[in-house]
Structure formats: structure tokens, C-alpha cells
Simulated scan of single mutants.
Amino acid sequence: MNQTKQTNLFALIFFVFFIMSGQLLYLIPIMQEIPYAWFSSIVQVIYFTVPIMGYFIWTKKNPKEVFRLSPLGWKNLLLIIVFGFAIQPLMRFLSFFTSMFFPNVALEYAETLEGASFVSTLLTMAILPAFLEELSLRGVFLSGYRRLGTWKAIFCTALLFGLLHMNPQQFPYAFFAGLFFCFLVERTGSIWASIIPHFIINATNVIVIFLPVAEEVAAMESPGNAVLLLYTGVSAFLSLPLLGLILYGFLKINPKPYTPKYEPKERFLSLPIFCVFGLFIIFGILPYLDYLF
């Protein structure tokens, strides 16, 4: 079994475990008694770490090489921090656009955490996703798809990142962000290049929730969709020059992709990946079709 097929098979196992683990854990009586924020944190730790540990036992790979835990250097670190804020208008625009057709799952999830402390909310919405999702996607999967070539590996990893969110509202902006995260990791050779902006994006949303004026803003009458779409669209457009400068800076500091090229090229599409697409249709699309009609 070549490396890409091996990674595809792991992707299928990963998605099945991702879908089932939370439901199975909730059947444990003690899990039903703890605050939802902590339950969610436990679920995240389990459904990411268990498959990852199984992956390393199965493949015998070196975690240091897979995760790419190399230091960034101060120039890259600075650019990445700025990037974490600069990409948010574009993600906000994509999120609002898709929320015109489907429910905003991230917002609904934040509402289920109402009453939780800032620390527990930050842990479950920002710290754990930033580390666990990046170690899985930009670590295991991006490394596993190296033999596809750099750009195909970036695309396929970002695609799985979008599919992993299991709903049509989050898929576009997760896929979009995933492309950038993969690019940053490939250019710098460090997983920190995706962990840091991922954390900044999620932590910003958590901070907004806990701002003293958050309740007053939520109680205000919301402008129409057309106005909000225009506002988020203009904000996204105005952020493009800064994003362009950041990417230019990355190309100057990191002129060559980190991932080496391999021959012969391998193919991404296979039965396990079609099964992953099927899982997304069943659990990520069908439950939301009612919102379109």
C-alpha cells in the first residue's frame, strides 16, 4: 500500500471515529453530568488523539517529522500573527454568506456554552481546536499526502479540513482557511505556522463573546442581510492588500516549499476517500437540506 492510499484509509477511519466518538461518550452516565464545555473538551481530546496514536503505531513514522515542530523564527512569527488577524474579514464574509442559506453551526455551538467560564470556553473553542486539528490535518494528513506533490497535498488536506466540519455552512471558509494554513506550513516547515493563526482566529471569536458590550450588541436590531453582506464584503476586500503583503513576505523569507517532490506521483481519489465524501453527504449535507426549501 503506497503512502497516499495509507493516508486515505486513515482518513476514513479518522472520520468514522470523529462521527461516533462524541455520541458514544455521551452514553457514559458520568459524561452527562459534567458541564458541556468540559464534556466537549474531553471529546475533542479523545477523537483526535486516539486515531493519531493509532496512526503512529500502524505506520511506525517519526512524530517529529510528521508534526514538523520546528521553531518559526521571529520574522515568520510576526507575519503569522498579523496573518491571523488579517484573514478574519475574508472568513467572516464567507461565513455570513453561507449562513444566509444554512444555520451558523459555530454560533449555535457557542450558544450551548453559555454560562461557561472564559477559560473553559477558550479551551474548548480555541486552544484545543488549534492544536488538535492542526496536528491532525497540517501534521498527519499534509505529511501523508506529500507524494501527491506540494500543491495537490495542500488542496487535498484543505478539502478534508472542510469536510471534517461536517456541515455546509462551515465548509467553504474552513476549506479556504485550510489552503492558507497548509501553505504557511509548507513554506516555513513548521506546524506552528498554522497553530498560531488558527488559535488567533478562534480566540478572537471567544473574546468577542465575552466583551462587556456583547449582550447589548446581540439585543440590538440586526441590519438586513443585504447590508451585512455588503459590510462583510467590503471589509474582506479591504483586507486583501494586507494579505497580499503578508504572502509576499512569506515568499521572500521562505523562497522554497519545505516538502520535497516525490516520483512517481500517486493518486488521491480512492475508495476510502469516496466513503469520506459519502459520510459528509449523509451527516453533513442531508440534515441541512430542509433549510434550502
Rank of each mutant, 00 (worst) to 15 (best):
L132S: 09
F83Y: 11
F131V: 05
L128P: 00
Y47A: 01
S143D: 14
Y291K: 10
F274M: 13
K265V: 05
S136Y: 10
L292H: 09
F18V: 08
F18P: 01
K252D: 10
G278Q: 06
Q3I: 07
G249T: 09
P260M: 05
F56E: 07
F171Q: 04
I13E: 11
G22W: 02
E216N: 11
F18K: 15
T124A: 09
I80A: 03
L135D: 01
A174Y: 04
V119K: 12
L159I: 01
L24G: 05
K265I: 10
K256G: 10
L12F: 03
S194G: 09
V208C: 08
W58R: 00
I209S: 13
T150A: 10
C275A: 15
F250Y: 08
P212I: 02
S70D: 14
T112G: 04
I209V: 14
F171A: 01
L163Y: 02
F97L: 14
I196G: 00
L132A: 05
L94F: 01
G115T: 02
K60E: 14
L113Y: 04
S120G: 03
E221P: 03
M220W: 08
Y36S: 15
I30V: 11
A11F: 01
R138T: 10
F180R: 02
L113A: 04
W58G: 08
I42E: 04
A219V: 09
P172E: 06
V45R: 14
G189Q: 04
P287D: 11
L69G: 06
T157D: 07
I19K: 02
N2L: 02
E215M: 11
E186S: 14
I34T: 10
I281F: 13
I196D: 00
L286R: 12
N76I: 00
N104R: 05
G224Y: 10
Q32E: 14
R68P: 01
R147K: 15
F183R: 11
M53A: 15
S239W: 06
L137T: 14
K75W: 07
L292A: 10
Y258D: 12
L77H: 07
L286M: 11
F67Q: 07
A86T: 08
I281M: 14
F283W: 15
W74K: 15
H165T: 02
L24I: 08
V206W: 00
S95I: 05
A218G: 09
F93D: 07
N62M: 07
W38Y: 14
T112F: 13
F199M: 08
N205M: 14
L135C: 06
E108Q: 13
A214R: 07
F171P: 00
P241E: 08
G22Q: 04
L245M: 13
D290C: 10
Q44A: 11
F176S: 03
L238Y: 03
L72F: 09
G84V: 03
E111N: 13
F118H: 08
L292I: 14
C182K: 03
G278I: 01
N8M: 05
I87S: 01
E186M: 10
F237Y: 14
Y26Q: 14
S41A: 09
Q170A: 10
R92F: 12
